[in-house]
Design a protein around this nucleic acid. Structure first.
Length: 180
DNA sequence: GTCACGATTTGT
DNA sequence: CAAATCGTGACG
């Protein structure tokens, strides 16, 4: 599979978020399908970092889409986002889970993503996202762990038949790390 | 310069 | 439910 092209990312943030489900996150030898994401809009979304406008930290969000927006939180965790929208408009997608790894901070830890990857071009390079089968069954829910604009339905979870998150399958039939 | 706070995780 | 732990952004 090839990396997704710039044109994939420079679209409406919510569209990019939904289309990212099923795509493959790759870093070196590590690969896994993306299973859960959240959309963070631009300056109109109180929960988004870009809400405060262009700052040193949010710089990458206002540039071209398809770049890594990594930030450090709680003095110990890293979270990985994918920038969306064309240059000049902010918007990004938080990667919350991939196959075998639930939780945004666990995901970065598992894939060795740190602030060193801030701004990395995901259409090429060691850290990238490859094309993959789109998710045919997507569950939409409010975003997790935020206080502002918490009611907006911007969290998307792939629930495809046969996938690790196909909840129609009894949890006891799944490998340990897929349960819950 | 100072200060409150957070898109989380882990343990009690 | 609370601690861990520090960069960011607002304010002055």
């Amino acid at each position: 599979m090839k990396p997704l092209p710039r044109s994939f990312y420079e679209r409406d943030t919510v569209t990019v978020a939904r289309d990212l489900l099923g795509k493959v996150l790759v870093h070196g030898e590590r690969r896994a399908r993306i299973l859960e994401v959240e959309a963070y809009l631009g300056e109109n979304d109180p929960a988004a970092h870009a809400y405060r406008g262009l700052t040193p930290r949010t710089r990458v969000l206002f540039g071209p889409g398809g770049h890594a927006y990594v930030y450090f939180v709680y003095g110990m965790h890293h979270c990985l986002n994918v920038s969306a929208e064309p240059p000049g408009r902010a918007g990004c997608v938080l990667l919350r889970a991939v196959e075998g790894v639930s939780g945004p901070a666990r995901l970065t830890r598992a894939f060795g993503v740190t602030l060193d990857h801030y701004g990395a071009d995901l259409t090429r390079g060691p850290l990238a996202i490859l094309d993959g089968p789109p998710s045919a069954r997507i569950e939409t829910t409010p975003r997790i762990g935020i206080t502002k604009a918490a009611e907006l339905p911007l969290r998307f979870v792939g629930r495809d038949k046969g996938s690790p998150r196909d909840f129609s399958v009894p949890a006891t039939d799944l490998p340990f790390y897929y349960r819950r």
